[in-house]
Amino acid sequence: MSLYQLQKFLYVLNRDQASQRRYRDEIHELLNDFDLTDEERQALVEGDIGLLYVLGVNGQILMHFAAFLGIEWFDYLELMREGIRKHGPVRAGVYAMTGGGERFTQEEKTR
């Protein structure tokens, strides 16, 4: 249930400008609208992309949160890899690690 709430928070944030304003101005009050664990709250407050990925947030939701935070594409990919290194494999949701987090584009390898 908790992953559902975590993803719901980001789903709402991604599409609702009022929530985006509240994220910047009164994030703790905004978080109180959702039933989240302390770890999930901390990940959202800090914009911890790596931990959010490990917690199981779908990338189709997470990549827009990263863009909202101003994180560039390749940095977004690297933050998820860092999250795996720091926190271990994805814990829940549709993802399991089927790759080693290697870089799959020449564009990124030569960055």
Binding site: G99, R103, F104
Partner: peptide, 9 residues
């Protein structure tokens, strides 16, 4: 594997 660390695979 879109929007994951394996993006591009």
């Amino acid at each position: 594997w879109p929007a994951t660390p394996d993006s591009g695979k």
